[in-house]
């Protein structure tokens, strides 16, 4: 029952994060909303494992956490430098 309440709270939060991802004025708002969706998906996996009584979903949650971080950093690097293979010695304005 408590797990179901937490899962419903996480689902409502997911809906709000998707709203921000659709409405966000800049691309960084969308990246932030995507990162939040990833975090909430990890928490939803953990909580749903306890709802169904099978907490083996946690392995998927750990793997998804690593993927979420790497994808957020890659998207940020792309939108900051315009290139994933940016070399800091090519231009002098890197900060």
């Amino acid at each position: 029952m408590i797990f179901a309440a937490a899962a419903i709270a996480i689902l409502v939060s997911l809906a709000l994060a998707v709203v921000r991802a659709l409405r966000g004025p800049t691309v960084f708002d969308r990246v932030l909303a995507g990162n939040t969706v990833g975090t909430l998906a990890i928490l939803l996996l953990a909580t749903y494992g306890f709802v169904t009584g099978r907490p083996e979903w946690l392995d998927i949650g750990i793997a998804y956490g690593f993927l979420n971080t790497i994808s957020t950093l890659a998207v940020l690097k792309f939108f900051r430098h315009g290139d994933l293979a940016y070399d800091i010695d090519e231009k002098g304005d890197a900060s």
Binding site: A5, A6, A9, V12, S13, L16, A17, L32, T36
Partner: peptide, 14 residues
């Protein structure tokens, strides 16, 4: 309380 704070953060995000 964890669910409450998750919801608070999402409302702030929106």
């Amino acid at each position: 309380s964890g669910g409450f704070f998750i919801l608070v953060g999402a409302i702030g995000l929106a």
